[in-house]
Design a protein around this nucleic acid. Structure first.
Lengths: 402, 402
DNA sequence: GCTATTTCGTCATGGCCGTTTACAAATTAG
DNA sequence: CTAATTTGTAAACGGCCATGACGAAATAGC
């Protein structure tokens, strides 16, 4: 295994790998895949000039990738330029696919994404998972996964791996859900409960949402903070295009950053954590809505209708977010902050006070805050794409398996 | 240039470099240097088994490094083991040296460190630089640098580069001091004021202090937060053995993390920033000491003598630090927090309240907080070592220059 | 003390891989 | 229709690491 380029998972902990010719080959195969994937149909010569190898070298790399079914020859280009036209290469729409899954509090979702980034199959199951035990939930999820894989199979796709987004903290082993308060799961090894015939990665939904933003977001920079609020408030910290996970995998716990150190006590042991002011439950309470059936959508509706109590609640949540983000921005100096998850839905009423607070507390130009365009699909897409990125990062490994 | 392994400076912003055989060779040369440097005298065979290459390959690499004067053959080992003894290799004590410099508020310091990590020459100049213009200060510093280089030269060392630690924010170009409040410098291009015949890197003293902790600290992990308080409170965020710099290079501004959002106004525009509670000036004021000549050493003395006002001031500073660090720990999930700089001197009176606050606000085991053993030399050593690491990271580049 | 064993460093050989050079193919410009 | 340009491929080349063999230098066992 060579070091992956995007590192959805951290690099091998031990010593750096030796540099041998095969490793070089693998990295160059990956470079070709990434280039073709990122910049659309490209001729061999175009790829060569982009990655700095000669046309001859790229030719042999491309041959190998075509033989493996990872690249496709689309046929001659028809350019207005002088000279022999190149033969357009594109990432294959058949072959390996990434299976992404999401365990939400109120739904399960699975999708298959091909190497081109297209969603080729999906399946959803609505219904609350709050308090359900892991076994029935994973049983349901497995059924959806089988269904999506079957559907993908009919289109000539085979599953290269499975990535699961969960609303909770995941250990760095990428399998164990350490704590998912809204599911009431603790130290649950999903590896033992999900299909064992696929490479599995489990991660926090905020992390996958952040990766989706990184990979799919229009103009998203390589250093940013992706804030995702469902019930807890999580953040994905993306540094130089890589996810910051922390030693235990718990990085990004924005919800428990102290906002008012003498504020109300929190389940985490602290006082005045952000979640007490901007968490879904807190906002619903402040807005005078019950937290039973009502959810964020309801908040947005009421706010849109001009309900002043709701608006004030959201304004105050924005202030609290602004305070917490001031700390985060001072510490991390990101390019921008992106609001995703349920927060995106109430963005219009949060943003003004959030931005104001952030600007007031910052010297110089304030860090720009925007709302994600990915909607609620972020974590699911991020999960599926993380598998796809894994294939692009080491095509040789996949070629061996196909 | 291959991508450096330690990346004191960020990797090339553009596309990843192509993988050619020369690049492979360069990386393997670097691997040999790092291995020998980190694990003391080693035979060729030992290096080979550690980096995963064959003895034959390592032999040619070592030959090249010896010819360049970067490695030395110490002669046959005398082990109790069976078999022909290897010939011990060590990093050369001659050849390239890293020149580190520190522009402190009250002093200037320069040192030369050889590839073995030994300090081979140093020079200090006491006297305040507060409010002095950049030109006279850099003139004094240049004199010290020349002196240290001359001293190093007599020992067979030549300067491979210059790294300067400054008490302020440095742009990502690694040359420009954007803001150094205690010097009253703004947008000062040190590249134009310091010797032009040496590769130059300028960085924040907290960053260099953090790198020193990473490279020199006993048992320091690869993910930690190094808090350094002189007048401002800065932090070096080290993630997976690399410094997190932020887009503009301003990451780690712990001093302006909001601790009490409605607290007193701060020069940064915010309210209740950490610096208002744990900054040197604030602590001195709370302790009832003038901030003129009195400094941290005085605080430590008074506290040691049992001055209850001083102790309370430090205790409260510790609390504020604990609150700010709770946020940082939640966001970054580091292995530990290390207190360096002037803070280290008053550690005994800060730590209890700091740790208590952090533990109280954290679910599960609290993040360990320790005091740096490097003392006030951290930034200077970190600077010099960053040059040395640069040589280890690309020995081929240095061999060409020697 | 002598021989077998183990480990080290080196050398010659071979294979892998990107580069260089050359060339045919396919297009545009004039 | 010719010249110029660009693409893709093939053959020769060179660099680099792996393999296998060998002499050198130590220990272990007799």
């Amino acid at each position: 295994m060579t070091a992956p380029l995007h590192e959805a998972r951290p690099a091998a902990p031990g010593r750096a790998l030796p540099d041998t010719q095969q490793g070089m080959r693998r990295r160059n195969l990956a470079r070709v895949m990434h280039t073709v994937s990122a910049e659309g149909p490209l001729s061999r010569a175009a790829v060569a000039s982009r990655i700095g190898l000669t046309r001859a070298a790229v030719s042999t790399l491309v041959d190998e990738l075509i033989r493996s079914g990872l690249l496709e020859e689309l046929g001659p280009e028809r350019p207005g330029r002088v000279g022999r036209p190149g033969s357009a290469l594109a990432v294959s729409g058949h072959g390996p696919a990434g299976i992404g899954a999401e365990i939400g509090v109120d739904h399960l979702a699975v999708c298959a994404v091909d190497l081109r980034g297209e969603v080729r199959a999906r399946a959803v199951r609505h219904g609350t998972n709050r308090g359900r035990a892991p076994e029935p939930v994973t049983r349901d999820l497995t059924a959806l996964i089988r269904q999506v894989i079957a559907e993908a199979d009919q289109q000539g796709l085979w599953p290269a791996g499975l990535a699961v987004a969960v609303p909770g903290l995941v250990a760095r082993d990428g399998r164990t859900v350490v704590r998912a308060p809204n599911l009431d799961w603790h130290d649950t090894d999903l590896g033992a409960l999900l299909p064992a015939d696929l490479p599995l990665v489990v991660d926090n939904e905020a992390n996958f949402g952040g990766l989706a933003e990184l990979w799919l977001g229009e103009g998203t920079p390589r250093d940013f903070l992706h804030v995702s609020a469902e019930i807890g408030i999580g953040a994905a910290v993306v540094v130089d295009g890589r996810l910051l996970r922390g030693t235990r995998g718990f990085a990004g716990e924005l919800g428990h950053v102290p906002v008012r150190p003498d504020g109300p006590g929190c389940a985490c042991g602290g006082r005045g954590c952000l979640e007490q002011y901007a968490g879904e439950e807190a906002v619903l309470r402040a807005a005078g809505l019950s937290s039973a059936g009502d959810r964020v959508a309801v908040l947005a509706d009421h706010a849109a209708e001009g309900d002043e109590t709701v608006r004030r609640a959201l304004r105050e949540a924005g202030e609290a977010l602004g305070i917490a983000l001031t700390g985060a921005v001072n510490l991390l100096d990101p390019d921008c902050v992106v609001l995703g998850g349920a927060l995106a839905g109430v963005g219009p009423w949060l943003l003004p006070s959030l931005r104001e607070e952030l600007a007031r507390r910052t010297a110089g130009p304030a860090c720009p805050v925007s709302v994600s365009e990915l909607g609620s699909d972020g974590p699911l897409l991020g999960a599926a794409h993380s598998v796809v990125r894994g294939v692009l990062d080491d095509p040789a490994a996949v070629a061996e398996r196909s």
